[in-house]
């Protein structure tokens, strides 16, 4: 079972939920995939023991100058302006290349071969009994979705897999949420939080993934967020109170499920609820 933890808005508590849920469920056999590759943070709370690093590359054209006639067909067909012919020579702007591989096929002189560029790395190891995998995007690389797909390839089907997704509702978030069995949307009861929750719900429904909501920094009043969830039949699986103690544990890199009473059970109950909902579906 693959459960993805996502949110529209950033900073609502995805990492808090992902790391604490993993810690609380360690006896079940848990794998945590950090797919927030622009800003991966799970390993700050669950430090790696004996990590292994794998470098992730994407395809770029490699121009064989001696075979190139400078005809410019490749550049004229490149949709991303990654190739340009300057004084009869093909120049590659590899940051712009989307790795479609078209130019390699088009070249009438077989002057383009398959090369590689680094886009990031994947770190794999264990942390306190959790199988932890983190994708880390290279600075200036714009190919986050490609790296996310590579991280998801590491999913171990024999375990309960938790995926920490990037914020937002565009291609990176879509890459992380696609194919999951369940999506936990973490939100906060502010107008920003609610606005972005609605967008995230729309995205997740479009991808056909069932949804549960976790309200973080929740106060006691029946919030507009709760009303929205009730109206739209979105189950609220957990409310984490607005509590400076929680913020401080998090700030120092701690886990509330280890350091504050009650949370370990709360996160176990979330999984219980998800499993029941999936069985009934």
């Amino acid at each position: 079972m693959r459960i993805v933890i996502a949110s529209g808005k950033g900073g609502t508590g995805k990492t808090l939920v992902a790391t604490n849920m993993a810690f609380s469920l360690v006896s079940k056999g848990i794998q945590l995939l950090d797919c927030d590759v622009e800003e991966p943070n799970d390993h700050l709370f669950l430090p790696f023991e004996n990590p292994l690093t794998e470098h992730v590359t994407a395809l770029v054209p490699e121009i064989i100058n001696v075979k190139c006639s400078g005809c410019g067909l490749c550049a004229s067909r490149c949709m991303y302006n990654a190739l340009s012919v300057i004084k009869g020579k093909v120049m590659l702007f590899s940051d712009l290349c989307h790795s479609c591989g078209g130019c390699i096929i088009y070249c009438p002189f077989q002057a383009i071969e398959q090369g590689e560029k680094a886009i990031g790395r994947i770190i794999m190891g264990s942390s306190q009994g959790i199988d932890l995998v983190a994708g880390i995007l290279n600075i200036k690389s714009v190919q986050a979705p490609e790296l996310i797909k590579e991280v998801l390839q590491k999913a171990n089907v024999k375990k309960t897999v938790l995926v920490d997704a990037p914020p937002g509702t565009s291609c990176s978030a879509v890459a992380a949420v696609s194919g999951a069995d369940f999506c936990l949307l973490v939100t906060e009861p502010t107008p920003y939080g609610l606005h972005d929750l609605k967008l995230a719900v729309e995205m997740t429904q479009k991808l056909g993934v069932p949804i549960g909501v976790i309200i973080n920094k929740s106060d006691s009043n029946l919030s507009r967020t709760e009303q929205y969830c009730l109206q739209h039949n979105l189950p609220i699986l957990l409310q984490i109170p607005y509590d400076l103690k929680i913020a401080k544990v998090y700030a120092e890199g701690g886990l509330i499920s280890r350091e504050l009473p009650g949370y370990q059970q709360s996160f176990r109950d979330v999984l219980g609820d998800i499993e029941r909902m999936s069985d009934n579906a």
Partner: peptide
Amino acid sequence: GPPGIGCPVV
């Protein structure tokens, strides 16, 4: 700006 360091931030 957007969060992160990816495409829209660049």
